[in-house]
Design a protein around this nucleic acid. Structure first.
Length: 286
DNA sequence: AATTTCTTCAACCGCTGTGGC
DNA sequence: AGCCACAGCGGTTGAAGAAAT
C-alpha cells in the first residue's frame, strides 16, 4: 500500500489565496501557533490542504518576511553562496533573514541566471561558458578518469616518475590541503564556528571577484571583455587565476581592518549577515 | 488599440528525510 | 526492520501583468 496523500484533495480549494483566506490563516497561526500543518486548515476553517497553508505562511504571510527586490549586494551574495552550495535554496535562504527559499530560487531563475550568462559564466558551474562547454564535450572523459585516481595514488606515481618530484609532490600536497581546507570551510560555514585563518579565506572567497575582475578588465593595462571573449578557455582561465591572485595580493596590501567599512559598496559582504559574521570572527589582522 | 510574446513569481507536485510506532 | 505520517525541499507550472510589435 502506497503512502496516502497528505490530505483529502476532494473539495479542497486550489490556486491563488484570497484576502479572506489569508486573514483566517494569519489569525489562526498568530493565536494558536503551529502544532501540525495537517490540522491547521481544519481548525482555521480553510478549504486548503495543510501543505498549501504551510507554503502560504512561509512564503507570503510570515510577519518577518522582507518584501521587495533584491539589492546588488544580495545578488552577489547569492551568487557566491550558490557557487558553494549549488541549488540548496533553503541553505542559501538561511543566510538572508526575511527571504524565503522560494523567493531566492525564483530570483535566481529569472534574473541572476541571465545576469551570469551575459557575463559569460555558466550559472551551474560558475565557470566561463566556453570552458564549461569544453569540459562537457572533449575533456569530460579525461577528467573523470583523472578524478578517479586518488590524490594518494597521484602522489605515489609522482614519486616514481617525476624528476621534479619534490616540487610536484609539494604542489600536490598543497592542492590536497587546499581541498581539505575548503571542506573545513564548508563545515565552518554551516556551524558558524570561528577560526581566524578560515575566516580570512572566507573573506577572500566572499568578495565579488567577478566584479573585481571586470573592473580590472576595464583598465588600460588589462584585458577588455571583448578580448577575453576571444581567448581560449585555457588562456581565459589562466588570466582569471592571475587576476584572482593579484586581487588577493591587493586585498592583502590595502586591507586595513579598521577601515573595513569604507570599502566600496560592491564589496557586498560588508553589509550583510556574512559581513557581520566576518566582523565578529576576524578581530585581528593576520 | 489589439494582439502577441516575454517575464515574474505564487503555488503546486513529487520526492526525500525523519521520527514514531 | 518496515510502515506510515508529516515537514521540508527543489523543480516545475501557469496565471497575470508588462513589454514589444
Amino acid at each position: 500500500m502506497g503512502r496516502q496523500p497528505c490530505c483529502d484533495k476532494v473539495g479542497l480549494k486550489r490556486g491563488p489565496w484570497t484576502i479572506e483566506e489569508d486573514h483566517k490563516l494569519t489569525n489562526f497561526i498568530l493565536n494558536n501557533g503551529i502544532q501540525c500543518w495537517r490540522m491547521v486548515p481544519k481548525l482555521a476553517g480553510l478549504l486548503r490542504c495543510g501543505k498549501s497553508c504551510r507554503l502560504r505562511w512561509i512564503n507570503y504571510l510570515r510577519p518577518d518576511l522582507k518584501r521587495g527586490g533584491f539589492t546588488k549586494m544580495e545578488d552577489n551574495q547569492i551568487i557566491q553562496l550558490h557557487s558553494r552550495l549549488g541549488n540548496r535554496w533553503s541553505k542559501i535562504a538561511s543566510h538572508f533573514p526575511g527571504r524565503t527559499d522560494n523567493e531566492i530560487k525564483n530570483h535566481w531563475n529569472t534574473r541572476i541566471k541571465k545576469k551570469l550568462k551575459v557575463l559569460g559564466l555558466d550559472p551551474v558551474t560558475h565557470n566561463p561558458i566556453e570552458q564549461t562547454e569544453k569540459d562537457v564535450s572533449g575533456e569530460e572523459e579525461e577528467e573523470t578518469i583523472q578524478e578517479s585516481v586518488s590524490l594518494k595514488e597521484q602522489e605515489e606515481s609522482l614519486e616514481v616518475k617525476s624528476e621534479d618530484r619534490d616540487q610536484a609532490k609539494s604542489d600536490l600536497v598543497q592542492e590536497r590541503d587546499q581541498k581539505l581546507e575548503q571542506d573545513e570551510f564548508k563545515i565552518l560555514d554551516e556551524t558558524d564556528e570561528t577560526d581566524l585563518l578560515k575566516s580570512y579565506e572566507m573573506l577572500c572567497g566572499s568578495l565579488d571577484v567577478g566584479s573585481w575582475i571586470n573592473q580590472e578588465t576595464n583598465t588600460s593595462t588589462s584585458y577588455s571583455s571583448q578580448e577575453s571573449n576571444n581567448l581560449s578557455a585555457g588562456e581565459f582561465h589562466s588570466i582569471q587565476e592571475h587576476s584572482v591572485s593579484q586581487w588577493i595580493e591587493s586585498v592583502d596590501s590595502f586591507l586595513s581592518w579598521d577601515s573595513f567599512t569604507h570599502l566600496d559598496e560592491d564589496l557586498f559582504f560588508l553589509e550583510n549577515s556574512q559581513c557581520n559574521y566576518m566582523k565578529h570572527s576576524v578581530p585581528k589582522r593576520l
